[in-house]
Simulated assay, not measured.
Amino acid sequence: MSRDFNKILNYSLLKISLIPLMLWLISTLVFILLRVAPGDPVDAILGSGANEASRELLRSKLGLNESLLNQYLTFINNILHLNFGESLSTQEPVFNIILKSLPASLELGIFSIFFAILIGFPLGFLSIKYKGKKGDYIARLIGIASYAIPPFWGAMIVQLILSVYLRIFPIGGRFPIIHSQPNITGFLILDSLIDNNIVYLRDSIYHLALPSLTLGFLLSGIFSRSLRINLDKTIKSDYVKAALTRGITRRKIVFNHALPNSLLPIVTIAGLTIASLAGGALLFEVTFSWPGIALRLYEAITQRDYTVVQGIVIVTSFLIVSLNLLVDIFIALLDPRIEY
């Protein structure tokens, strides 16, 4: 047992040691791409009609008149001290922008994954139960359609039907603009519960329902297809056939033996999906005007706001790398076949 623990510990430490290298590579790549991209942040802030003296003063203030090497060294030094600078357009600290935007994306991502599993798993079971029959074809068709639909297009169609025509859900936003939203943790549903405010809780769920259900449905095909493939493969294995010959019911075999062994690949997929949603679904948040980190990133890109783009990419990269690390360690704990 101690030997296994040491192996897992060494495996975890090896994975953790790679995080700084990956973040450095990502940060360097972002720095280079933003500098070689066409356009000038000074023009984005002052406009192309500003006089040269104002332009040079702002360029000096932002450090853009220094050499690329000095800019890069300053950039890396600031990151090491968790200083992401200030927004070029609003002068607000980038760290505050991220703290305000990230909870919205995480809240949307968590509920979207919940609905994706809630929709995808029954479709996967239905496909296995009626394999080769009408139910299988229907479940597979729904799974393929959900996976193939572009998120932004699916979001617009849902908005058009349920928000514009039927007026069941709000077309966008996270909270009614006529109310001041609770701000304790940044997660509106949790804040409403802490504040014991039923009206805020209702409004939060009302605005979250449509985007999370839509994104959940669009992600459900990943889970339904993965469950179908892995469960079908497990059911065909020798130990399942042996259990059937001993008279064990198919239901017990599926839920007690086949399903647990089929979940490892699904855990991997779920981890990668959650990690990808840590930074938000860019076009999805833009379509729903969801004030998450992806929408803020989109706004920063259009405004040529270097510091905000850099800060958001670095923080979301750290979240994605960390979540992938946790998934790797979790799978290593569950699967004894993993070599450390």
Rank of each mutant, 00 (worst) to 15 (best):
S48N: 10
A148K: 12
E92L: 09
S192F: 04
N77W: 13
H81F: 15
L188P: 02
S146T: 08
K236D: 13
L201Q: 02
L218R: 05
V158W: 01
F169V: 06
I16G: 00
L21R: 01
M156E: 01
I32L: 15
K252R: 15
A275H: 05
G172D: 00
Y165D: 09
A116N: 07
L166V: 05
P260T: 12
I338L: 13
M22P: 00
P41H: 04
L219I: 10
R251N: 12
D195N: 03
S180E: 14
L193P: 03
S105K: 09
V321K: 04
K133P: 02
F115T: 07
A139P: 07
N70H: 11
D136G: 02
K131H: 07
I161P: 08
E285P: 00
F95R: 11
E107M: 14
N230V: 08
L210S: 01
D43F: 11
A242S: 15
L68Y: 15
M22W: 03
G280S: 08
I168V: 14
R251K: 14
N197Y: 05
G216I: 12
I117K: 08
L123S: 07
E285Q: 05
G221E: 08
S89E: 08
S289T: 13
E86H: 07
L108D: 02
I320M: 12
S262F: 11
A278S: 15
Y72G: 08
I293F: 06
A281E: 12
F255A: 12
